[in-house]
Amino acid sequence: MSLLAVIEKELRMFFRYPLRVISVTLIGIVFLLQFVFFGEAVLGGRYSQILASSTGLGDYPTYALIGYILWWLFASPMEAYVWGVRRELQRGTLETNVLAPIRMIKFLIGLSLGWILIDNVLMGIVFIFGVIVFKIPVSFIIILKAVPILILSFIAFLGFGMIFAGLVMLFKHIGPLTQIFEFGVMFLSGVFFPTTVMPKTVQAIGNAIPLTHAIEAIRGIFIGKSYAELIPTIEILLVLTFFYWLISYALFKYAEKLTRVIGYGGY
């Protein structure tokens, strides 16, 4: 009930700024369009043999749309935690919430789930827009096959994002740093181009990010791979999910303890 109350409060407040809904959707669409057109211009058209031979998926708009939507899904929990706490600090309401018997972790998850819910709806709109505008070959079977991978990816992303929940409690003003990180991930995880074009060390860093493997798995489904063929990728995703949840929980507990020493930065 208390978790739902936090989510409901966030949703109510989000929709009290109607322009925000329009601006977030438009930014999402503009971002997608420019990357797809840029890619097509560089590749000399929609289809690329080079891309197909290195990734198995030669249709650039499909390639970019999958990467972009998953990147959005990946960034959403981070944004939600970081800006959720930031907004509460700006409103002066963080300590009012901390003082309530609701657990801090539950409150933060509520804050982020509200945001993620909104984000995913907007992302869905951008996805449908991309599918229609770029005539992406997507079927009901593909979507159905992608759902379990998407759920697993999302759990991994939530765990990864919670690291930022711990960080934001300690450092408070990490919004810009988070954005730099998100855009860095865009390159490291092969959102718009294959990571194979980058040095091996950079690729190794990219491999530690769950998004890289989530994108690989979903692209695999789009080119008709079976679950059996995707097992190695799914295994890595599972290991990373466990690893990041462990790390983020430990960091969060440490941050929670330290925050009671340094204060919540409230009133």
Binding site: S2, A5, K9, M13, G92, T93, I102, Y267
Partner: peptide
Amino acid sequence: GERTLYWRLSAYENLKYFARIYY
């Protein structure tokens, strides 16, 4: 200070929210 409530919620919505997180 005055910023301990949600200004974009109504008085009733504020109390309802806090009632929920106070169980």
